[in-house]
Simulated scan of single mutants.
Amino acid sequence: MTRLEVTGVKGIGALFISFLIYLIGVINEAVVVLMFFMILDGVTGLLRAYVTKSWDSTIGFAGVVKKLGVFVMIGMAAGIEYMVMSVGQDPKGLVLLGVTSFFIVNEGISILENCAQIGLPIPAVLFNALEKMHRDPSGKEQRLIRSPMLDRIDKKELLKENEALHTQLNKKKEEEKKQ
């Protein structure tokens, strides 16, 4: 499957789960707030990429996939709540609220990080907390550093080489079939 097909399948799955959540009736204000925060995170992420001149479609695509995954997790939480309600218990929305609240906080931190990287004034306490979050207890940074070699690789040349290798493999298979 290609990336586009995988994204399509995940998108259809997310739509299906969202519709089921709607039918079950467990959409609450927290889910709406989470969706709003996700939109804000996407906008601030695009602004950060523009300001820092670090646009990378792979990172953007990974972010979209993660956001779809969040809705899958919320769908799972809604399913658990539905199961508990079907046996006569009333979870009072705590499972869904707990999962959704976790992701709201996560999106809020991401928005704050994007705003800090854009250059907006962030209170020192929050800025220091963000810096500490990117370090492990021993003080070593946990950020991923892109290999400088990757910047020198020309994607078009890689695709041409890959196509040539694929052609050679096909010829080899055809020769083996003839023998």
Rank of each mutant, 00 (worst) to 15 (best):
V87H: 06
I80Q: 00
A129Y: 13
L112G: 11
F61V: 03
C115S: 11
T52P: 09
G119F: 02
E174Q: 13
V65H: 06
I27H: 05
K172S: 06
L68R: 08
V32T: 08
L169Y: 09
M38W: 06
E29N: 07
I122L: 15
L165Q: 12
A78G: 11
R146L: 03
L169Q: 13
M1Q: 07
V32S: 03
F36P: 00
A30G: 01
T100C: 11
I27D: 02
S86D: 12
V32H: 11
D90W: 03
M83T: 06
E176Y: 06
V84E: 07
T7F: 08
E176G: 01
S110W: 05
L112I: 13
T58C: 04
L47D: 02
I109C: 00
V72G: 06
S110H: 07
A164P: 00
L159I: 09
T58Y: 05
F19W: 10
L112W: 12
K140E: 11
E141S: 15
K172C: 10
V65C: 09
D41W: 00
I104G: 05
G60C: 01
A49I: 03
S110I: 06
T167Y: 08
L4C: 09
F36D: 10
L126G: 02
K160V: 14
V6A: 04
I80N: 02
E175I: 05
L130C: 08
G63Y: 08
V105L: 14
S54R: 12
V51Q: 06
L150C: 00
Q117A: 14
Y50N: 05
R146F: 01
G25Y: 03
V32Y: 09
V125W: 13
L15G: 15
G60W: 00
E176K: 14
V87A: 00
M73S: 14
L46D: 13
M83F: 14
S57R: 08
G108N: 01
D41N: 14
K140A: 06
C115D: 07
E176L: 12
V64R: 12
W55P: 00
A164S: 11
G13Y: 02
A30P: 01
Y50T: 06
M73F: 11
Q168K: 09
P91G: 08
V9P: 04
D56Q: 14
E107M: 14
F103I: 01
G8W: 03
A124R: 15
A78H: 09
Q117M: 10
V6K: 09
D151A: 10
K132A: 14
G88F: 03
K66P: 02
R143P: 02
I24F: 07
M85V: 07
N114I: 06
C115P: 00
P121S: 10
L68H: 04
K155G: 03
K132L: 10
D154C: 07
E161N: 08
A116P: 08
K66W: 05
E174P: 02
E175G: 13
P123Y: 04
W55H: 12
I17T: 09
K171W: 00
L130T: 04
D56P: 03
L144Y: 14
M133N: 09
G75Q: 04
M35P: 00
N170H: 08
G98Q: 05
N170S: 07
F61T: 02
V65D: 13
G63V: 07
S86L: 11
Y22E: 04
I104V: 12
P121Y: 01
R48A: 10
D136I: 10
Q179N: 11
N162D: 02
N162K: 10
R146G: 00
E113N: 10
A124D: 13
L46A: 15
L23Q: 15
G108S: 11
